[in-house]
């Protein structure tokens, strides 16, 4: 027999479920896309910041070439570059204007030494080397990246909470739709029980129905969600700010978002089953 005993497809309480699930899936996909993109971006920041430091040397008697040689010999250092004075002048231009006009006797320009560390290396050796030389300061990106990392972490948390709220709302919609369908189908359900249908048999009909509705809604919401994430992150990267270069979900992130309809369908299936079993077990 191919026709189902329960005519759930014609149940009026189910009519809007795919639309609601689609809207919630869209919200969930965008929230997940935001969380994954922020995770990639902050990981990118971490990688860039962790292997790059700058030595700022107040001009005076310091023998810069000797210092560069000393630093280059440290195990942790992979590359070192003393930035030319012209480059330093360009970097300071936004604050000082044309540096050529500045009286360097009154406002001496620092020497900047760009140091790249080997992967996984830390700054312990370098800090030890300059520990007793007060004219040398070690600048690490960590100092200014930390608040940004914290902010991005907070945004990620908010995105995860939104995704969880969307999934929770899908569960609630499924509970209400299943309860209504069970009420509408009460006579048929009673008949099925009377002729010996186990609660699991009846629950299976409702869970299949829930799966079908949620899968349709999940696909309808996730596909536009993926498109929105793709264009929104691409537009952010095109702004040209180096900080936003990593703002795109990782491959695993894209796959996780693409799997959202399946996750939503499984959540709805489980929810429908639990709802039906709970209601049926309330009566003998």
């Amino acid at each position: 027999m191919s026709v189902s005993e329960l005519s759930l497809d014609r149940d009026p309480s189910s009519r809007f479920v795919p639309w609601i699930v689609a809207a919630l899936s869209l919200m969930c996909a965008i929230a997940l896309g935001t969380a994954f993109a922020l995770a990639s971006m902050t990981a990118d920041w971490g990688r860039a910041a962790s292997d790059q430091v700058t030595l700022r040397v107040a001009t005076g008697d310091t023998d810069i070439p000797a210092l560069v040689d000393q630093v280059a010999q440290l195990d942790a250092v992979s590359r070192i570059e003393h930035l030319p004075r012209e480059q330093v002048a360009r970097m300071l231009q936004p604050w000082l204007g044309d540096v050529a006009q500045v009286d360097t006797a009154l406002l001496p320009l620092p020497a900047l030494i760009d140091v790249r560390l080997k992967p996984g290396a830390n700054t312990t050796e370098l800090r030890a080397l300059i520990a007793d030389r007060s004219e040398i300061t070690l600048d690490s990106a960590d100092a200014w990246l930390a608040p940004l990392q914290d902010l991005a972490g907070l945004a990620r948390l908010v995105a995860w909470v939104l995704a969880a709220v969307a999934v929770g709302a899908i569960m609630l919609v499924t509970v209400f739709a299943t309860r209504s369908a069970l009420v509408n189908q009460r006579q048929t359900v009673d008949l099925l029980r009377l002729i010996g249908a186990a609660d699991g048999y009846i629950a299976k009909r409702f869970q299949r129905h829930g799966l079908r509705l949620a899968l349709v809604g999940g696909i309808a919401g996730t596909v536009p969600g993926l498109i929105v994430i793709f264009f929104a992150t691409a537009a952010a990267r095109l702004q040209g700010a180096a900080l936003l270069n990593g703002l795109t979900p990782s491959l695993a992130g894209w796959l996780a978002i693409a799997a959202l309809p399946l996750i939503v369908a499984l959540v709805a299936t489980f929810t429908a089953r639990v709802t039906v079993l709970k209601l049926l077990r309330a009566s003998w």
Binding site: R193, I195, G196, A197, A198, D199, W284
Partner: peptide, 9 residues
Amino acid sequence: ARDVPVLRR
């Protein structure tokens, strides 16, 4: 309750 369906059959 889980054993009742078998009797109902």
